[in-house]
Write a protein that binds this DNA or RNA. Sequence first.
DNA 1: TATGTAGTATATAGGTTTAGTAGGAATTAA
DNA 2: TTAATTCCTACTAAACCTATATACTACATA
Lengths: 152, 152
Amino acid sequence: MLSKKTKYAINALVFLARENKGNEPIAIASISQSENIPRKFLEAILLDLKNAGMLNSKKGKAGGYYLQKSPDEINIAEVVRLFDGAIALLPCVAHLYYARCDECKDEATCGIRSVFADVRAESVNMLKKATLSEIIRRGEELTKNPHALDKK
Amino acid sequence: MLSKKTKYAINALVFLARENKGNEPIAIASISQSENIPRKFLEAILLDLKNAGMLNSKKGKAGGYYLQKSPDEINIAEVVRLFDGAIALLPCVAHLYYARCDECKDEATCGIRSVFADVRAESVNMLKKATLSEIIRRGEELTKNPHALDKK
DNA sequence: TATGTAGTATATAGGTTTAGTAGGAATTAA
DNA sequence: TTAATTCCTACTAAACCTATATACTACATA
């Protein structure tokens, strides 16, 4: 399961992508209120997103946050990794967060690893395609055609 | 990431499936030693697997655990769910462990949910296909042909 | 029937992570 | 200079994870 932090981050990003046409800064308070995210918690999240290069901010009066990259350049895989770490279910199949499984005898011939490598590959693939634009597109599609749940 | 509990469980199950041809009970101590799993921790895990119907046990001298179901009837999805709960990354796309996302405004038109529903569907699908037999088969295949990592 | 082996059950300890709070310093616009 | 806003540091309560301790129950076999 994703942490609340990650969920909040995704919601905040999608909100910003939808709201901020001209890239005018939007105040933390607005996002917090609109997306039901605890104010102080959101501050930390937005700061992380800024440090990761996805957002930028303007300080002082009439300040706030806005997207630093285009909505189709920000994908969910990035966000998940930033807050929750690896997408893989086993450390031995992670790429960015690779670690040996200490119980493992031989990684190269491990059938368990092979299965989870496939799962990881597919998940990463899907989450990378899931950009902010794509999410917004899906939302619009579902609004028009409420039974589009069987697309796969 | 999977918990250690789940990883230990999978390793123990695969070990039992490989080892126990005639379904003679194998002692906790054997599994613990062979798979590098802390003895006492393993006890609890095996008990859970038994209560879930995957294993059965024989008490007393020459006792131990053995598979209750056939190796192609036990899949990784089951095991993960037993110890780690939902496979889904968001509660709102889980089936067995469904829960509303409290921040969510409208589940039916949520683009985020739509993305994670797809990821979940694919993951569950893959993990259900990953039976103990399949894992053993993959292990053997990798032993024969060490570069079979690009099967997808 | 005695004895030892092994599974069953419960409690708990220590560490880590999660989710969130508090307070204030720094910055900017009016 | 004042009000609004981000930025930064520290703190806390609760939950969860991993593992161990202790004692008990059931069973096989000599």
